[in-house]
Design a protein around this nucleic acid. Structure first.
Lengths: 138, 138
DNA sequence: GTACTTGCAAATAATTTGCAAATAT
DNA sequence: ATATTTGCAAATTATTTGCAAGTAC
């Protein structure tokens, strides 16, 4: 979802559109995959240098509650946040050097449909991250 | 997987079978869904009163590394652990109520193979998280 | 006996809360 | 004008580490 649309909806819901909140929303849009609160903070400071980490937590909570963002759990155990509906930002990470590369053509639909039937859930979004060795590290 | 099978495999891998480890494995078997380290600790103490929380963390790490246990991301922010019922399984999380459900038959192989060719990476592992609405919340 | 494990205490990291000052509406 | 939001500092909670003592093999 676009930044404008999110801010508009927040505004409609009675929340104020502040510089810190804009900065967090922008940072999330710039992120390819998911980011920890600390990472969001780092990135969002570019847009609002005075931004405090606490505000990042609070804003992520708000966005999460409003359904614009979702919490995901990363392998290392840290929590990450990603834009909901950003499900098609997939990437491979090299476990050796950390290089990441995006790939496109996420044709998981048949798979997702099957899981939906099997579990009774209405699947709305997904996050996929692949881990492996990049060509240089092999 | 049964307790005996897990301990056997740990033993085969060169790890020692201790009272604290048995207690943690048993506690996981008694748990229906997933449990936080603190919850595992509480339950496992019934089988090994001297058990320390630190050992629970270490044992969960070990079991997780060996693939006997999976980390689950709970809504409230705490990490949870659940037995991996063999094979590679994933889960769907309900964005409304947080209920999680496992599904099996994660047959992504054709997809992974294609991405491997496309990116030049040797894909070794993947993290897939699905988000949706559970049947009760729909 | 020896190397792996444990539990404790202390260190570190992650997240939340209280509150006066700042600011969007 | 005023109720919301912010940033800081401090509190709380979660997780990891160092190390001497304990234990499986």
């Amino acid at each position: 979802m676009s930044e404008e649309r999110i801010t508009h909806q927040l505004s409609q819901a009675g929340y104020r559109i502040t510089r810190p909140r804009r900065a967090v929303i922008r940072a999330l849009h710039e992120e390819r995959g998911y980011a920890s609160p600390a990472e969001v903070h780092l990135r969002a400071r570019k847009h609002c240098p005075s931004l405090g980490l606490v505000t990042v937590y609070r804003t992520l909570d708000l966005l999460s509650e409003m359904g614009f963002v979702r919490r995901i759990h990363a392998q290392d155990g840290c929590h990450g946040y990603a834009l909901a509906d950003g499900g098609h930002r997939h990437h491979v990470v090299c476990r050796q050097c950390g290089a990441t590369m995006e790939f496109d053509g996420c044709d998981l639909s048949p798979f997702l449909a099957r899981v939906g039937r099997q579990t009774g859930y209405a699947i709305e979004d997904h996050l996929l991250e692949l881990v492996g060795l990049c060509s240089a590290c092999r």
